[in-house]
Each structure stands twice: as structure tokens, then as C-alpha cells.
Nucleic acid binder design. Structure first.
Lengths: 132, 132
DNA sequence: GCGTGATTACTCGGATACAAGATGTCCGAGTTTGAGCGG
DNA sequence: CCGCTCAAACTCGGACATCTTGTATCCGAGTAATCACGC
């Protein structure tokens, strides 16, 4: 159980967009270059971010990916859910009559983590970095 | 990113041992039967639990697996770490000069979850279930 | 009756196979911009 | 100077290849308890 590389990339892309180009579309080419990963793979993640409604895709010449209007509100959890999916991290595979108490304990802990990720926005982090 | 089936099994095995046989060794055969999984696969997880120091293995006839003395103190986190490993869930793969703030945010959230898992013991849950 | 050896019931660990998911690449189709060309 | 066409620069999405990891099985080696046998 680990966060995937894709999540790592997605978070860095979002941070880059927020810091460097909150209003202009940026091509995959440039984003991939900045991160040092392949264009085609990065585009997979960007597609997921688009489907999750975090960014827009602008097709055609001078196109690329652009943040949506409400980019200040995008949290870490939003990005992570877009890439990793929103299903619970733990699912009991046994069907012992009552609800599984083990599952409840683990899911409670999971919610703790999600709450922390939800509280922190990309925008907040960007401001913090510019301040440095 | 999900908790593995193995973790699910391990937690249930531990709960079973604490509830039903805190002092006697139980063979893999019986444990596997109770959970409805294969013996050979379950033994892999038990081996990990042994290496993590959570249980003992008793070889020979009438052998099996037995809890260690301090079984009241075993937390969910102990079991999960034994199976999943203790490495951090998130590692930034870019080496931008300074430390990665993204990583710090995610790791902070991770620690929140771990703290919740550390606070809950298997023994506590067993008492709770017997009370029902 | 007592010791010795064989049998039995276990764990332990390595080798292996298989499936799923993450990672990574390639290419054809659609879309918009902008430049070039002809009237 | 205006409008039309065409090429270029993009994204989009599917098909595919590869690698790692989780899941699962099998089997031989080692170990402890128990039973049988012989003295």
C-alpha cells in the first residue's frame, strides 16, 4: 500500500500550474519537460484531473491544460482522489454476520488522514513557497 | 493504493487469537478453516507476524501459532506495519533543491492516520465484541 | 519398566505460477489557430 | 484587402507492452510429541 507515482506527478503539476500559470493553458510538452517525465504518460494523469473537474483542457493550437476558476479551493484530497479513486482503503472480505468492527476502526483512521488532506489546499502551499 | 487482502486476514487472525486462544498454540489448519482461506497463503502472513515479533511459532506436534506475552498491547498499527511494511506511503521522486513541501503535507496526514491506528489495540476490540 | 527409534503432526522457507495494477509507449482522430494564397 | 484553404500545434482516447506487486500453490527440510518395540 503506497501512493502511486502518478499521484506524486499530479500534485507537482497542480502546484506548478497554480504557481506559474493560473490563467493560461500550458501544453503537456512543457509540463512534462518541467517535471522530467514522458508526455504521453503525464497526459494520462491530466486526463484524470480533467475528468475529476480540477482542470480544463483547451484543444487546438496554443492549447494545453488550464486551471478552473475555483483553483484556490482545490485540496490535496481532491487531487489524490482524482488519481487514486475514491474507494475506501480497506474492505473486509469476510461476511461475518454483523458489520466488521475491524473495518470500522481502520476506516476511522483513514478518515483522519483524509481530513488532513482536505484541509490543505494547493494554493495555500503555493503562497507558502513564494514566501520563501 | 489500498490495504492488501493480507492485512485484512492478519487483523482477523489476530483478533481470533486474542478472543479464542490467548495462551494456546493454534495450527494454521484451524486458523485457515476459521477464516475460509488457504493454509499455505495464510502461513505467509503468519510468518510475517512472527518476524515482527507479534506472535510465536511453536513447531512440532500440537504446535501452531501462539500470542506473545504482551498481546494486550498490540495495536492495529503493529499488525499493519508487520504486513505492509513501515516505509512511508508517499515519496517525492523529484529532487528539487529543498525538501519537498508536498511530501511533508502528505506525510503529516499519514501520521494522523497512524496515530489513530496506534491508539486502538486488538485486545480492546476483542473486549468490545465480547461485550456485545 | 524404560530407553530408543520410528511415525506423525506440525512449522519453515524456497521455488514457482498467475493475475492485477502501475508504468510507459505509440498512433490515429478530432479541433483550433494562424499563415498562405487567390480573387 | 478579404475570404478560403491548408498546414501546424495541440488534446483525446484506445491499443498495446512491460514491470512490479499481491495472491496463491506446492514441496522438501526441520522439529517436537507420541507411540511402538525390544531389552
Amino acid at each position: 500500500m503506497k501512493f502511486s507515482q502518478a499521484t506524486d506527478n499530479a500534485l507537482h503539476v497542480m502546484l506548478y500550474l497554480v504557481m506559474e500559470a493560473p490563467d493560461k493553458p500550458v501544453s503537456v510538452q512543457i509540463l512534462a519537460e518541467k517535471l522530467g517525465v514522458s508526455q504521453t504518460y503525464l497526459s494520462k494523469m491530466l486526463t484524470k484531473l480533467v475528468k475529476a473537474g480540477l482542470i480544463h483542457s483547451v484543444s487546438g493550437a496554443n492549447g494545453g491544460y488550464r486551471l478552473k476558476r475555483n483553483y484556490e479551493e482545490i485540496s490535496f484530497l481532491d487531487v489524490i482522489h482524482a488519481i487514486e479513486g475514491t474507494t475506501s482503503l480497506f474492505e473486509c472480505s469476510f461476511n461475518h454476520g454483523r458489520e466488521c468492527l475491524i473495518q470500522q476502526v481502520v476506516m476511522d483512521a483513514e478518515r483522519q488522514m483524509e481530513q488532513a488532506l482536505k484541509a490543505k489546499t494547493i494554493y495555500e502551499l503555493a503562497k507558502q513557497m513564494k514566501g520563501v
